[in-house]
Design a protein around this nucleic acid. Structure first.
Length: 419
RNA sequence: GCCGGUGUGGCAGAACGGUUAAUGCCUUCGCCUGCAAAGCGAAUGUUUGGGGGUUCGACUCCACCCGCCGGCGCCA
């Protein structure tokens, strides 16, 4: 499989550290609020990546962190008069519920920041011992001047950067916090540098080092994490023992946009996953997301999602008779997936598979994409269909039409065969 | 300002230097149909933001210009 890596800005064949195993880490959410469709896009994409890799026989260890200690959590908890633990557990649960209802279930293990405090402290200690971090009265900071590779991922030059977080005790404005000393309520821990809490970037490297080691295969996340977050991760991890590169394949998903602007909490132009699920089902939403390439911007509009719904219905309506395997189109599907997860081209192949009647492929590939391409028939449904068929045969159209009307109103598509 | 991305028919969106630029939605017409939907068949429509360069050949590579989006220590 070929993947585009932000690190090299090129598409390269995926060569993993262990031949049949893939270590995949994806930055998870900060659990202080409900997740929106922009988050859904990223997590659907990596869900499909993991499922595809597994379908090719790879063993995929998909690790995702849960950021449950953070300024936003502290502030939100204070606003709502809740404890940080209460708030973060609640939204962690809601997050998992939302993504599960989107059929996202490929993650092997979720790792909370707060349950990895010893690992975090240990990593910070080692960074200090390596001479790349220093202690001040406000915390522990990473000395970016000790790290040559910084800027590799984003192309940003260190000298041009000025931190918004001003702290007089920092040696340089661009240095970032590994540990913040102070009392932050219940989420405050003892450390060799006094009581405090972890900085933002350290949890990811502490967690990934624990489960994967200092080098692994793929690190994913949204485009907005490249700088500074992923740059900081590289600086931290590669400074431990100098292993380079920390990961070879950095995958970044493009933004979901609304009227040309990035969907985000701060702009207030977001639609939560659960709200979207009131209008559309998970198959439609996944189809819509996968209809564009993961690195391209994707416009979220009702029209766009409705079009996806129609296209999906079309596939289901066409895919009826099983006419056996179509090897050429199957190859078109896997070629598309192999080519940097080109899901739009893969979905074009799905269309062709439906037309050609390769039901087996639709089932198999549907599992990879997490989309049901086949019309579901339940027992009650087919009973109603049988009754309608009988009524129509007797030319009792009024009752038959009434049933149809009600079924359509209930969102069930009716297709009558000619009498 | 610096860095990164992006610009393909009405819309969404492929094409990874080489036949008529996929596919879906929309539109139009025909068939089918108890009616409708669906389905089937066909049609209209882009010459790929701009002007250059490399090449026998460029949507595809290079430099530049324009537009749009994003990042610049909050963010999937």
């Amino acid at each position: 499989m070929d993947l585009y890596s932000t690190l090299t800005r090129t598409t390269e064949p995926l060569v993993t550290l262990h031949p049949d195993r893939v270590y995949l880490f994806v930055c998870g959410p900060t659990v202080y609020d409900y997740s929106h469709l922009g988050h859904a896009r990223t997590y659907v994409v990596f869900d499909v990546l993991a499922k595809y890799l597994r379908s090719t026989g790879k063993e995929v260890f998909y690790l995702q962190n849960i950021t449950d200690v953070d300024d936003k959590i502290i502030n939100r908890a204070k606003e709502e008069g809740k404890s940080q633990n209460e708030l973060s557990r609640k939204f962690e649960t809601e997050y998992l519920r939302d993504i599960h209802s989107l059929g996202i279930d490929a993650v092997s293990y979720y790792a909370r920041a707060t349950t990895h405090i010893p690992e975090i402290i240990d990593q910070v200690e080692r960074l200090i011992a390596r001479g790349v971090a220093y202690v001040t009265e406000t915390g522990v900071y990473f000395n970016l001047d000790t790290f040559d590779g910084n800027g590799e991922l984003s192309g940003q030059e260190r000298a041009k950067r000025v931190s918004r977080v001003s702290d007089a005790s920092k040696h340089n404005p661009h240095d970032f916090a590994l540990w913040k000393t102070g009392e932050y309520g219940e989420y405050t821990w003892d450390s060799p540098w006094g009581r405090g809490r972890p900085g933002w970037h350290i949890e990811d490297t502490a967690i990934s080092e624990k489960y994967f080691g200092q080098q692994y295969d793929i690190h994913g996340g949204g485009l907005d994490l490249i700088f500074p977050h992923h740059e900081a991760e590289i600086a931290q991890m590669e400074s431990l023992e100098g292993k380079h590169p920390m990961v070879r394949y950095w995958m970044h998903t493009g933004f979901l946009t609304v009227k040309g602007e990035k969907m985000s909490k701060s702009l207030g132009n977001f639609i939560t996953i659960r709200d979207a699920l009131k209008t559309w089902n998970k198959d439609v939403l996944r189809y819509f997301i996968l209809l564009s390439h993961y690195r391209s911007p994707l416009q979220a509009t009702d029209e766009g999602i409705n079009n996806a719904a129609k296209a999906l219905e079309h596939i289901r309506a066409v895919a009826k008779k099983d006419l056996g395997e179509n090897r050429d189109i199957r190859k078109a599907f896997t070629d598309a997936m192999e080519s940097d997860l080109n899901t739009p081209a893969a979905l074009a192949a799905i269309q062709a598979l439906a037309t050609s009647g390769d039901i087996g492929a639709l089932r198999e590939y549907g599992d990879i994409l997490g989309i049901n391409f086949l019309r579901e028939t339940s027992a009650p449904l087919s009973v109603l269909q049988d009754i309608r068929a009988e009524l129509r045969a007797r030319k009792e159209f009024e009752v038959a039409d009434l049933i149809r009307e009600r079924m359509v109103a209930a969102g069930i598509t009716i297709t009558d065969a000619p009498l």
